[in-house]
Write a protein that binds this DNA or RNA. Structure first.
Length: 261
DNA sequence: ATGGTTGTTCCACAA
């Protein structure tokens, strides 16, 4: 079972790129972030034509998450528990072929020192609580998305440039590690501990892509049951080099199916 | 220290 995560930075602006990539890579599930449209404006028909059923949670202009799947999508959750007043569309979760899958768009948190950073840390604390609850079922859990977290200096081309940024501050990394310490695995780094230049995001500005000035902020966190089933996890840089590219590129995860020894 | 780019929306904001 192949599950991909991709911050598409507007599903409508990116539609041709996304459809092309789905045709080439054929993931069973695509988790999207920053769809940047209201739910009703999601291009459901174009995904259906490619074979994908979509569950989307959108809002006007900003944020928005979705799950596209070749297989039936069950038991959809559209909120991260812990703050009923939070109206930002950043979390959707469902069960597909027995795997509990979430598409996560964790707050960016910049500028530091504003309510935006407080919101980020509060959101991470809520995610930790919910991630802990998900472990209790002892099922495969796959939490994929744009975490807006640079876990380590090795995950940035120029770590110095990020050290005071909301994506890399010690408090951000501590909150990230709290989730790992529950029993989740950052599966890409676990499988590729020494890999350099493993980035998922390159800024549009200042020729960052050309200079490979990237960061790794799109991640898969896996429960033990999902980590045990993992066949491979890789970053596909190809979409970032295309015309009209998102500033993020997809990460692919492949789980062994039950039948496979 | 600043400016560099993209998307959406409405002339600014988020990233």
């Amino acid at each position: 079972m192949k599950i991909a995560t991709w911050n598409v930075n507007s599903v409508r602006a990116r539609l041709p790129n996304i459809v092309e990539w789905l045709g080439q890579m054929k993931p069973d599930v695509l988790l999207m972030q920053e769809i940047k449209c209201e739910t009703a404006a999601f291009p459901f028909m174009e995904f259906k034509a490619a074979g994908y059923e979509v569950r989307a949670l959108g809002q006007k202009s900003y944020n928005g998450v979705a799950i596209a799947s070749l297989y039936p999508v069950e038991d959809v959750r559209e909120t991260l528990p812990g703050d009923d007043a939070d109206a930002q569309a950043r979390y959707i979760e469902a069960t597909i072929k027995g795997v509990r899958v979430a598409s996560i768009y964790l707050p960016n948190g910049n500028p530091v020192g504003t309510e935006k950073y407080d919101y980020k840390l509060a959101w991470m604390a809520r995610l930790k609580n919910h991630a802990a609850a998900l472990l209790r079922d002892e099922r495969p859990v796959v939490l994929g998305g744009d975490y807006n977290v640079i876990p380590d200096t090795a995950d940035a081309h120029n770590p110095k440039a990020w050290e005071n940024d909301a994506l890399a501050l010690p408090a951000t990394r501590a909150a990230w590690r709290e989730i790992l310490h529950l029993g989740y695995t950052d599966i890409f780094r676990a499988l590729h501990p020494d890999k350099q230049n493993a980035y998922t995001y390159w800024d549009y500005q200042a020729g960052a892509w050309m200079r490979d000035d990237g960061i790794r902020i799109d991640h898969f966190l896996l429960s033990p049951e999902a980590a045990d089933k993992t066949k491979q996890c890789f970053i596909d840089r190809t979409p970032r080099g295309k015309d009209k590219a998102s500033d993020h590129t997809p990460v692919m995860l492949e789980l062994l199916s039950k039948e496979t020894p």
